[in-house]
Amino acid sequence: MHPRSSFKALMETVRWKSKPWDDMEMDAINSLQLIINGSLQEEHPKTVANVIPSVDNRVQKVDELCVIVNEMVRLIDTAAVPIFVVDASGVINGWNSKAAEVIGLAVEQAIGKPVLDLVEDDSVETVTNMLALTLEGSEERGAEITIRSFGPKRKSSPVELVVNTCCSRDTTNNVLGVCFTGQDVTGQKMLIKNYSRVQGDYARIMWSASSTLIPPIFMANENGLCSE
């Protein structure tokens, strides 16, 4: 499902024309609003009085729910970090713009792919364990995974992410999937690798026994004493 487009279609093309919402659908809407209202009350008890509209005013409830969902989708889609969601079977069903930018895989290409198809071999076990633990309710933090790059980025190095996971739950608190929120650390990893390589080259040159490799080198400290 792609909530942003589906709710947009609902609001723009079939407003006032759809068949009446049945009781099961209204119960689901009420449950979601109760959850949202409860979360807001916990965070802002003095400023949030009541965000649940009257039960009888069903059209207003649907409109307000659409606004809330659209706002949630917009916030996730415009987040400055890669975010993707995986269902209980390990298939991607959510992919934000930053994930598409960093990894090079468009939303329509990512949706429906098994997440393990995107990760490098050395990260398969880590991601598998994270999925299993999070689906059991144990959310993970600070795990490092490597994801393949796609599209124009395919020839570049893989993407290094530090990720946290959280559970996606239904109204009865059953875990439906896993949300991954990542931080792109590819640049930092590359910098560390380059520094280590240069440091190693420096050490090999400084302590080489070959007199033809480089002329004699010495270093002095601030007091003029030889330090190397």
Rank of each mutant, 00 (worst) to 15 (best):
S138C: 06
E101N: 09
S6R: 13
S123R: 00
I103S: 09
E42K: 13
R58K: 15
D184R: 02
F150L: 07
Q109H: 10
I147H: 04
D23V: 12
S156D: 14
D121N: 07
E140T: 14
N30F: 13
A132R: 14
N223G: 10
R169D: 01
V159R: 13
V127D: 01
W95K: 00
G38E: 05
P45I: 04
I205D: 04
M206S: 03
V102A: 09
L135Q: 04
N174Q: 14
K113R: 13
R148C: 11
K8D: 04
I111T: 00
I214G: 03
K61E: 06
N30W: 13
A209L: 07
P152R: 04
V86A: 01
M206V: 03
D63Y: 06
Y195H: 11
V124L: 06
F7S: 11
A220R: 12
C66F: 04
D184Q: 04
V185H: 05
C226V: 15
N223V: 08
W207G: 10
S149D: 03
A143I: 07
V159M: 09
E108W: 01
N93C: 10
D122V: 02
E42F: 04
V159Y: 05
S168V: 15
E25M: 13
K189D: 02
T186E: 03
V115F: 02
W207F: 12
W21A: 15
T172R: 11
I192V: 11
I35N: 11
G200K: 08
V81F: 10
K17M: 13
V178K: 04
A203W: 02
V73R: 03
L10D: 05
S149V: 10
S39L: 14
V198H: 10
V91F: 11
N173G: 07
Q109L: 05
K17V: 10
E160R: 15
T165M: 09
A9C: 07
I68S: 05
T47K: 15
K189R: 14
G182F: 01
V67H: 11
S196V: 04
V124W: 00
S227C: 15
I192M: 10
F218Q: 06
R204Y: 01
G151F: 01
I83E: 00
I36R: 13
K17L: 14
L213Q: 07
V69T: 08
R141D: 01
E108F: 02
I214D: 05
L131F: 02
P158E: 03
P53W: 05
W16S: 15
V127T: 03
N50E: 09
C226E: 11
H44V: 08
L116Y: 00
V175L: 07
L161D: 02
E139S: 12
W16I: 10
K155L: 11
V127W: 02
P3Y: 01
E139P: 00
E120T: 10
F180C: 06
K193D: 10
G112K: 05
N174F: 09
Y195R: 14
S97L: 10
L32C: 07
